[in-house]
């Protein structure tokens, strides 16, 4: 067990170092941070609108740049090992191929966690700055001074702990995308193909549940076709599991049990993805 832990941690560390060396993290994290810093340029009319905008903007930035980081870093990671032939050195060691894949995923997961943490801290800083300037403006407003109740409500909405849960749900969604990208990387030789396919999967994942319902509910569809659709729905991800983050942004304040469905769904998806990608990776020959 300790040998397995040692192998996994060493390979995970190598993946992290490799990703840092490739500058993928900085190339995505810096534009994301710069985008976040433009937040004070947008001012809305009411407090309610302003809070909504601040939440949406920070979450949107994390979501988009996080998705790019998850897909690009994963697609680059495996193909780089192949291009630079480092995979030969690694696989020549007494190491299972599933261990290699798991450590790749874990390394990218760590990088994602690090990136989201930085963006969350930056967002919190911006929230504090915006809160201060908004409150100053409100106190100076002679026509409509804010009551202490309004101030409290504003502060509560802005600093809701549920927002952290939204970031966690986003992290789970990105981890699922890492899994899918890793699966495509084991088949494809081009990282561009992997990136494009993963983005398609992301889009299809959003449409899956509605499309499945529509196809299954339509009359005149052959049993064979329904089987195909059923099979596709088993393989394709259902992104509606991660809609909880959007609910939180709209003002929902759920308990911790809210995390169980996306957590469980991500875990079991990663299991079958690992099974299939190991199967493919085992049968692949490297020359």
């Amino acid at each position: 067990m300790s040998a397995l832990y040692l192998r996994l941690s060493t390979l995970t560390g190598l993946t992290v170092r490799d990703l840092l060396r490739q500058n993928v993290l900085y190339l995505i994290l810096i534009p994301a941070a710069l985008t976040l810093l433009t937040l004070p340029l947008f001012t809305a009319l009411t407090f309610e609108e302003q809070i909504k905008f601040m939440r949406d903007f920070c979450y949107g930035t994390m979501s988009i740049f996080g998705l790019f980081l998850a897909i690009i870093a994963t697609a680059q990671s495996l193909s780089n090992d192949l291009e630079q032939k480092t995979i030969f050195t690694i696989l020549a060691k007494p190491l299972n191929r599933w261990e290699y894949l798991v450590s790749k995923g874990m390394g990218i997961g760590l990088i994602l966690f690090f990136a989201l943490t930085i963006l969350t801290v930056l967002s919190a800083g911006l929230f504090a700055y915006q809160e201060k300037s908004l409150l100053e403006a409100a106190i100076g407003n002679a026509t409509h001074p804010l009551s202490s109740q309004e101030l409290q409500r504003f502060s509560d909405q802005l600093w809701s702990p549920a927002l952290l849960m939204a970031v966690l749900i986003l992290y789970l969604k990105l981890i699922l995308m890492v899994g899918f990208t890793l699966l495509f990387s084991t088949v494809a030789s081009s990282s561009l193909f992997t990136i494009f396919t993963s983005l398609m999967i992301y889009l299809i994942g959003h449409l899956q549940s509605t499309a499945r319902e529509w196809v299954m509910g339509s009359e005149g569809l052959s049993v064979g076709m329904k089987w195909v659709v059923g099979l596709l729905s088993v393989i394709l991800p259902d992104m509606s599991f991660y809609e909880g983050a959007e609910r939180i942004l709209l003002g929902a304040t759920p308990g911790l049990s809210y995390l169980i469905p996306p957590l469980g769904y991500t875990f079991f998806n990663l299991l079958w993805i690992l099974g299939l990608s190991t199967w493919i990776f085992e049968s692949r020959e490297f020359r």
Binding site: W98, V234, G264, Y265, F267, F268, N269, L270, L271, W272, I273, L274, G275, L276, T278, W279, E282
Partner: peptide, 13 residues
């Protein structure tokens, strides 16, 4: 091992 992971993953999903 791969089949087990696949079955368990699909079942959980």
């Amino acid at each position: 091992f791969c089949l087990l992971l696949l079955i368990l993953g699909f079942w959980g999903k």
